[in-house]
Design a protein around this nucleic acid. Structure first.
Length: 613
DNA sequence: TTTAGGG
DNA sequence: CCCTAAA
C-alpha cells in the first residue's frame, strides 16, 4: 500500500515519530554520503503523504544498501546530495492504485530482494535533477522530482553536473554506437562496458534500453545512437524522445516503451489506467514506477518466466475498496429487504465489482482477449457453470411424494424442512446458516436470480443427499460445517467434505503416476467416482499435503500428531511419500519455504533428501 | 476448460 | 473451500 522511499530530511525532522525513523546513513559509508544531513526512511502513501517507515522497512532497506554498497554511485566529491537518485533507488511501490504498473511482478522486488543480487546501480537510473529540489521533504518537491515530464525533457540535453561523477565509465566504448544495429552479443558487451558487469538478459529491447539509460544517465531511452569521446557521451543520434511537446503524449510514450522494453505485460495498461477512477495519483509516480520496473534486473525476467503472474484478483481489489462494494450491495440490500425475505446473503457481497443492470441482473465486465474495451456479460457463478456435483437423480429418488421438484426446492430453501428431519448434519447445516447463500428470491419472481438460487440450492441439497448415501464409515465425523467470516461479519459456510484417507492415498497415487499438475487427469482416472472432488479440489489438497509434509520436517520427532484441527492427521508415511514426490518433481519451493511453508526451515532439497532418505 | 495461486 | 486470472 505504500511506497518506501528514502528521503533526505533536515535535522529538524518534521516527523513527530522520530523513534520510528532511523537514519540510513549508517548503512552507507561516510565517503559515499558526505553531506551531514540525515537520511530518513519514509513511505509515500497513496495520496502522496510521507509517513515514517517502520523499523522493518528500515532494516530491509538497510540490507538493500548493504548488498551493494560498492556499486552505489553516490555523489561524494562535490558534497552534493543524492536527492532524487536516492529516492528512486529506494522506491518501492506496492500500491495498486498508485502504481500504474501494478500487474507487473517486478514491483515485488526492491525491498524484498534487497538481499539478492539486486544492483543498486541498476536500481538507480541516475536522474539528472538539481539537488536543490530534493533538499526538502515536502511531497511537492518529491513529486517534481518524479515528474515524468521534467525527467524526460531535461535528461536529454542537460545531464547536469550533479550526475557527472556518477557517470559510468566505459573505457571500452569508442566511437559511434548504434544500439539498434547491435546483436545481442554485442549488446551484452556494450552492457558490460557500460555497467561493468554482465547480464544474462537476452531481450534486445531491454538491453538497448538499459544501455541507453546508462549512457545517457537518464531515463531517456529513445536514443539509440551514441558517440563516445573521451569517455563521455558527447553526442546522441536521434532525439525523438525529447521532441515531444505534448505532455500527455510524452508520458504515454514513456510508459509504452517501458512496457514494451521491459517485457511488461502486453495488456493495455493505459487502458486499465484510464478506467480506473482511483488511479488519480498514478501519473505522478508513473515514470517512477517504470523506472523501478526497468531497473529490476535479470532476476525479474527470469522470475517471470518461471512463475506466471497474476494481477490482483477482483476479489482482492474489492476487498480493498469498500466503497464500491457498498454501492453494489446497497442496491441488493434494498431489493432483498423489499422482498421481505430477510438477510442479505454474505455471498452476494463478495461480488461487488459486478454492476447491476437496469433490469437488476448482475453483470460483470469482461475484457475480450484483445484487451479491448470490456464487454458486459451476465455474471455467472461458478456453481452455475457446473461445478460437478452428484447426480441429480439421487435426489429425485429420495423424494417420496409426487411433489414437483421445483416446489420442493423452494420449500426446502425456505426452511420448511422436508424429509430427513433427524439428520444431524442437515439440522446443523441449517442452524449454522441463518442466511442463505444466495439472494433470497421473491417467491413469484421468475427471474434468473430465482433460477440461480434454485440451482444453487439444488447443488447443496444434492450434496446433502449424497452425504447421506455415502459410506459413512470414513467420514461420519459430521460437524464439518465450517463457517468463515465474511468481510462484514456475516458467516458463510464452506461446504466442506473432509478428505478421507483413501482419497488422500488416491491423490498421492495419482500424483505419483501422472505428476502433479495433471489434476484433471487424476480426477478423471482416480477420482472418477468421487464426483464431488473437482480437479481444483485435488490441486488444493495436494497443496495442503505438501505444506503438511514439509511443515512436519523440522519437528519430525516430538509432535507427530499434534495437529490441532480435527481434520484427520495424515499418517507420516503418506506425508513422507508426498515429500518424496514433491522432491522428485522439483516442486519444493526453494526460496519461499519459510514464508509459505511455515516450519520448513529453508533447507534445500538436497539437504532434505540426505537427511531423510 | 484447465491450471495456478491467492484468499 | 472459494474465487479468479491465465493459459
Amino acid at each position: 500500500m505504500e511506497t518506501v522511499v528514502g528521503v533526505e530530511v533536515n535535522d529538524e525532522a518534521k516527523f513527530e515519530d522520530s523513534t520510528v525513523a532511523k537514519t540510513i546513513s549508517e548503512y552507507s559509508s561516510p565517503k559515499q554520503i558526505a553531506d551531514p544531513v540525515m537520511y530518513k526512511l519514509v513511505r509515500v502513501e497513496g495520496d502522496g503523504r510521507l509517513v515514517p517507515a517502520t523499523d522493518d522497512e528500515v532494516m530491509e532497506v538497510g540490507n538493500l544498501l548493504e548488498a551493494d554498497k560498492s556499486e552505489m554511485h553516490f555523489v561524494a566529491d562535490t558534497g552534493q546530495t543524492v536527492g532524487c537518485t536516492t529516492n528512486k533507488c529506494l522506491l518501492q511501490s506496492e500500491n495498486p492504485e498508485v502504481d500504474a504498473e501494478k500487474s507487473n511482478p517486478q514491483f515485488d522486488m526492491g525491498v524484498d530482494t534487497g538481499k539478492s543480487n539486486a544492483r543498486v546501480e541498476e536500481i538507480v537510473p541516475p536522474f539528472a535533477r538539481s539537488s536543490n529540489d530534493s533538499r526538502s521533504n515536502e511531497s511537492g518537491s518529491l513529486g517534481e522530482c518524479l515528474n515524468p515530464l521534467s525527467g524526460l525533457i531535461e535528461c536529454g540535453s542537460s545531464t547536469s553536473a550533479v550526475c557527472t561523477s556518477s557517470k559510468p565509465e566505459f573505457p571500452k566504448l569508442k566511437g559511434e554506437i548504434c544500439l539498434d544495429k547491435l546483436s545481442v552479443k554485442e549488446l551484452h558487451e556494450t552492457f558490460k562496458a557500460t555497467f561493468g558487469r554482465e547480464t544474462s538478459v537476452k531481450d534486445k529491447q531491454w538491453l538497448k534500453r538499459r544501455i541507453a539509460m546508462g549512457l545517457t544517465n537518464s531515463c531517456e531511452v529513445t536514443t539509440t545512437t551514441f558517440v563516445i569521446k573521451d569517455n563521455k557521451v558527447v553526442k546522441k543520434g536521434k532525439e525523438e524522445g525529447c521532441r515531444i511537446v505534448d505532455g500527455t503524449l510524452a508520458k504515454d510514450l514513456v510508459v509504452e516503451s517501458m512496457n514494451e522494453n521491459c517485457g511488461g505485460s502486453p495488456k493495455g495498461h493505459s487502458n486499465q489506467e484510464e478506467k480506473n477512477p482511483l488511479n488519480i495519483s498514478a501519473p505522478r509516480l508513473r515514470n517512477l514506477s517504470s523506472e523501478d520496473d526497468c531497473a529490476s534486473e535479470d532476476l525479474q525476467i527470469e522470475k517471470r518466466a518461471a512463475k506466471r503472474v497474476r494481477k490482483p484478483t477482483r476479489r482482492y481489489i474489492e476487498e480493498l475498496s469498500e466503497v464500491e462494494s457498498r454501492e453494489y450491495s446497497g442496491k441488493l440490500i434494498s431489493s432483498v429487504k423489499n422482498s421481505g425475505h430477510g438477510q442479505l446473503s454474505p455471498r452476494s457481497r463478495v461480488r461487488p465489482v459486478q454492476n447491476v443492470q437496469s433490469d437488476g441482473r448482475p453483470v460483470v465486465t469482461r475484457r475480450d482477449s484483445l484487451g479491448g474495451s470490456g464487454v458486459q456479460v451476465p455474471y455467472v457463478s461458478r456453481v452455475r457453470r457446473g461445478r460437478p456435483r452428484e447426480n441429480f437423480m439421487a435426489f429425485m429418488k429420495l423424494q417420496p411424494s409426487g411433489m414437483g421438484m421445483a416446489a420442493k426446492l423452494v420449500k426446502k430453501a425456505l426452511c420448511v424442512r422436508g424429509p430427513r428431519p433427524d439428520n444431524e448434519r442437515g439440522n446443523s447445516l441449517f442452524k449454522a446458516r441463518p442466511a442463505h447463500r444466495w439472494i433470497q428470491p421473491p417467491l413469484i419472481a421468475e427471474s434468473k436470480k430465482d433460477k440461480q438460487y434454485l440451482e444453487r440450492k439444488t447443488a447443496e441439497l444434492e450434496e446433502e443427499v449424497d452425504l447421506k448415501h455415502e459410506d459413512s464409515s470414513e467420514d461420519n465425523s459430521d460437524d464439518n460445517i465450517v463457517t468463515v467470516p465474511t468481510a462484514k461479519g456475516g458467516m458463510r459456510r464452506k461446504h466442506h467434505r473432509p478428505w478421507t484417507l483413501s482419497e488422500v492415498v488416491k491423490l498421492v497415487d495419482g500424483v505419483a503416476t501422472h505428476g502433479a499438475g495433471r489434476w484433471s487427469e487424476i480426477k478423471r482416472l482416480a477420482f472418477a467416482s468421487y464426483s464431488y472432488r473437482t480437479s481444483v479440489d485435488l490441486k488444493d489438497k495436494w497443496r495442503n499435503l505438501l505444506r503438511a509434509s514439509f511443515a512436519q520436517l523440522p519437528a519430525e520427532k516430538g509432535m507427530q500428531n499434534s495437529r490441532k484441527h480435527a481434520s484427520l492427521p495424515i499418517p507420516a508415511p503418506i506425508l513422507l511419500r508426498v515429500r518424496q514426490l514433491a522432491e522428485k518433481q522439483a516442486q519444493v519451493p526453494q526460496n519461499l519455504s519459510s514464508s509459505k511453508f511455515a516450519g520448513f526451515s529453508g533447507r534445500n532439497v538436497h539437504e532434505t533428501r540426505s537427511g531423510y532418505l
